[in-house]
Every structure is written in C-alpha cells, then in structure tokens.
Design a protein around this nucleic acid. Sequence first.
DNA 1: GTCTATAGACCGATAGAC
DNA 2: GTCTATCGGTCTATAGAC
Lengths: 211, 211
Amino acid sequence: MNTKELILEEALKQFSQKGFDGTSMSDIAGPLGISKAALYKHFESKQQIFDKIIEESEERYKDVLEKLSVHYPDSSNEKMNKKDVDIYSGISAKGLCENVLTFVRFSMSDEYSRQVRHMLTISQFQSSKLSEMYTKRYVDAMLGYDERLFEQLIKAGVIKNGNPKVLAAMFYAPVIMYMGMWDREPKRAEECEKAIKDHVEQFFLMTINRE
Amino acid sequence: MNTKELILEEALKQFSQKGFDGTSMSDIAGPLGISKAALYKHFESKQQIFDKIIEESEERYKDVLEKLSVHYPDSSNEKMNKKDVDIYSGISAKGLCENVLTFVRFSMSDEYSRQVRHMLTISQFQSSKLSEMYTKRYVDAMLGYDERLFEQLIKAGVIKNGNPKVLAAMFYAPVIMYMGMWDREPKRAEECEKAIKDHVEQFFLMTINRE
DNA sequence: GTCTATAGACCGATAGAC
DNA sequence: GTCTATCGGTCTATAGAC
C-alpha cells in the first residue's frame, strides 16, 4: 500500500472521530510516522484530502449497491433491469429477513463503512453537497430499493396491499435508527441487533398475505 | 435579556452550524458586538459555554416531555402515573395522528429545537456522554413513550396484537428519519411532511382493529 | 463588564536542503 | 518524497487599563 492510500486511510480514521475542523495535518501525519510537510507532496490541502475520501467512498458505495442491485438514485438508467426483477420476484419473505440482517451485520462490522458513516454523520450540515449525499446514500437509495421490492411483492400477492413507499419507510427506518444507536453506543450492540431482528420478523408477520 | 443569555444564544447558533471546533470565540463575540475577551467575564472557557448549552437544553427538553407526559428514561419514578394512563386510554387513533403531526411541526419550526438537534447530531461522537444523550433524547424517550402507548391501545383492543416495542419503532422511526431529511434539505420539507402524514395514516390503517 | 494588547500554542501551508 | 525550519495567521485565554 502506497503512502497516498495510507494518508487517506489515516485521515478517514481521524475525520470520522473528530471531524474536519477537529483534525490537524499533524494528527494525520503523526500516526504514519511522517512529517506534516510530507502530506503536501501527495495532496494540495487538508480540504483536498477530505474531498478525495468523499469521492472514493462514493465509488466504493456504488460498487456495493451494484452488487445488491440497488441502483443509485440519479443513475443514468432509471428503469429496472432484468436482474432486478428476477431478484425481486424470486425472493421470499424469509430470505429478505436474512438479506437485511446480512446487510446490517456487514455495515456494522466493516471498519471502512463505519468510518465513512460516522464522517458523513458529523459532516452532514457542512455543505449542501454533503447534506444531499447523506440523504441520497442512507435514505433515498435504500428506500427506493425497498419500495420497488415491495411493489413486486404486492403485485405477486406475497404481502398485503399498501403504499409501497410507506411500507419501505416502515421497514427500513427502524433498521437505520437502531444502526445509529449501535454506532453511538457499541455496548448496546446486542440490544440493537435483537431489536432489528424482532422488527423484520414482526414486519413480515404483519404484512404477509395468509389466505 | 442579559449578556450571558445572549452569549449562549449566539454560541448555540454557531455550534449548530459549524460545530464546536469550527466555532471560535470571535465567531460568538462578533455578532454580539463585543470583544472575545468579554466572553471570559461570563464563562471560564469555550468548553464551559458548550456544556452550559447542553445543560440548559436538557432542562428545557425535560419540560417539553413533561407536558407531553413522556417520562425521561432514567427518571426516578419508573412507574406510570395516573395522568399517563388517562392520556393513553382516552386517546383515539385519529387523535394520535394529529398529536404526532403537531409534534413534528413544532420540532421543525421551533428554532431552538432545531439548533439543539443539529448541534447534538454533529457532536454525537464527541464523547460517550453526548452519544448517550442523543440516544436517550431522540430514541429511548420517544420509543418508551410510544411503547407504553401501544401497550394500552392493544390492551384496550383498539389496535391489533403485536410486540409494543416493535410497533413503537415502526411508528416512530420513519418520523425521525424524515425529520432528519427535512433538517438536511429544507427544500424537501413538503415532501417530508407528506411522507410523515402518509406514514402515520397507513400505520393506523394497518394496525387498527376492525371487527 | 468592557476594552486593547498580548502571551503562548498551534494551525495550514511553503521553502529549501538532501 | 522526506526532512527541518519557518512564515503568517488564528486560536484560547489572560493581563491590565478604564
């Protein structure tokens, strides 16, 4: 791993803990065993380091969504592709529960995801760009995915009728709420994981069609 | 209004926008038309100003909850008092919808509430005290209130059977999620308000007993 | 209780040697 | 591409006059 990448890694760690203003160039250089002057051979400014982290996280996030078939909101291709339909229609309620829990466990155990999430959380009011990125990433993308999923499930008669957008929020919002609690208070991790599990289970008991 | 209160007011405004580290004593003194040296006649340090804001917000928040009969999580009196029961059992599903929308509209239009919420949001990882305060205030308190409310509504046969804690999260989490979006992107305020309205309405359609 | 002035530390960023 | 040294500026906080 080259120095540039090590700088980005350490900077993300610092920014995610203390924010942009609370982190100095020395804070980043110190743990790497180099002087702060050396940072300027790789980046023009502290702001540029921050921007680069954001940019890279955007790419990595899109890659993850791609694998989950979650289209990023303002992707060029607005229509659902075949793969999505297959995934949506082939899925069972029970399988979906497992999918969500897998997503949660990954999001909470992956150090990079955690750091980016923390950094964006404490930077979300810094600029309209960051505000919109936060919403797009942690609200719109997930809600959009779940909404289309519930559309399919309703059409297929798997779950009861209802507004898919409302159902998506009802399903996803508790998950993200408990993930936030988990981030703030890791000692309550088990409690949060159980609450999420209880939630997804009861959600399907409430919405699934039994005829 | 005396100088000390004006300092706290201006400091909250600045902290809520730029955070603790991004705000200087000059930033606080400037808009008040005094020198930064004068601040030290009222407070010992910048940290003490921040702490005082947190302390006061805690008291004001408890007062608001008191009026809503929402007990603060680690209040000395763990049991429900009579007033709560009356409120819970006397409420209708439709009335509850209105209550929630009133709560949301107040929270989003009241400048003080908004600033404290922003400040806590961007400071939530600064210390375990702030982490716990955030969770207690914006998760535990509201969930606890809703949970006891749903307990009563289930017991009274108003809504269908289910785990009251899970129902509480399903009801409250989408509300707080859309309030977060509303905070980040005020231009989407109408969209958020409508989403909340749709959510509370459909929630009761889904959970209310029709026999 | 306000001011000006300033101490002393640290900041982001640069210069120039190697 | 790393270092040391340093510039010019800002930071928190204090001293002391009024």
